[in-house]
Design a binder for these strands. Structure first.
Lengths: 142, 142
DNA sequence: CTAAGGTAGATGACACGTCAACCAAATGGT
DNA sequence: ACCATTTGGTTGACGTGTCATCTACCTTAG
């Protein structure tokens, strides 16, 4: 339980600090950043539901999110000829520019706040631990 | 960076799942839970700002939070005789009942989803890693 | 005693996440 | 051909978090 407390504290501070940073230096929220990273990594254009599965969010969250991002011009929605219900989400030039500006700065913060705090062995251990927890959760109900 | 990705994924899934659970089986939000745990651990009555420091939140967040909790009857606000600006936050009987019901169930979920996934050594390693990251963050600007 | 600055806490505007309900188009069985 | 189910995606209400701003009270230097 001490481990749990430390983990929680660390995780809250770290995530909080990083998302405040990304917002401060790019004007984007952490969610904007995540979506743009995944979307552009995947070619800058994908079906809505594929994006949902890739990012592992609920579809309603993604729907609100892309709605807001579209309003700000970071992405656009196109309708899908093959499936009358479907939608493509496309990263706009503005979106590309935003992510290309933000990514290196963000990576730098991750390195500074997180990676630099740990040795190579500790990073490996943490990766292993995280994967084990993930795997264990998969096979747990609910 | 692989370690970072695993960590982020794990942490998101785990926190998401736990807070959905606590809300589902107690009707309280994760924030309600946190506040009540800390408050009752500290005797069930403390100055607002002490609570803010204990939980390590921004005061405005806490202000909104206790406002909502007061509206639901989980805590009450009393004014402070020594300091005209001050407020005491007090856990009501309803509040006590709520965490006393919720806490064991929540602890059980933490054990099931997190602690049981790891060996004693892994837990110790994770605690050490978390503390190192926390300590490292303290001495980093911003 | 008074003015300057600090501290306690509240508030309003806004972005975000969740849940449940919803609609429309696709699919599959009879 | 037809109805039932599933899938893709949206919507609205509501609770939550952040930021900036505000007020009231306290403290302390002069």
């Amino acid at each position: 339980m001490a481990a749990w407390d430390s983990f929680i504290r660390m995780q809250e501070k770290l995530i909080g600090r990083l998302s405040r940073r990304v917002h401060a230096d790019s004007g984007m929220s952490a969610s904007d950043y995540t979506v743009l990273v995944k979307l552009t990594e995947a070619g800058g254009r994908m079906r809505f539901m594929d994006l949902v599965k890739l990012v592992e969010w609920e579809k309603s969250r993604m729907s609100h999110q892309v709605g807001r991002m579209a309003k700000r011009g970071l992405v656009a929605k196109e309708e899908c000829p093959d499936d009358g219900r479907g939608a493509f989400i496309v990263a706009t030039p503005t979106g590309y520019e935003a992510i290309e500006d933000a990514a290196p700065v963000h990576v730098e913060h991750v390195r500074r706040l997180f990676i630099d705090a740990l040795t190579r062995e500790e990073l490996a251990a943490l990766a292993r631990i995280s994967d084990r927890v993930l795997a264990h959760m998969e096979e747990q109900p609910d």
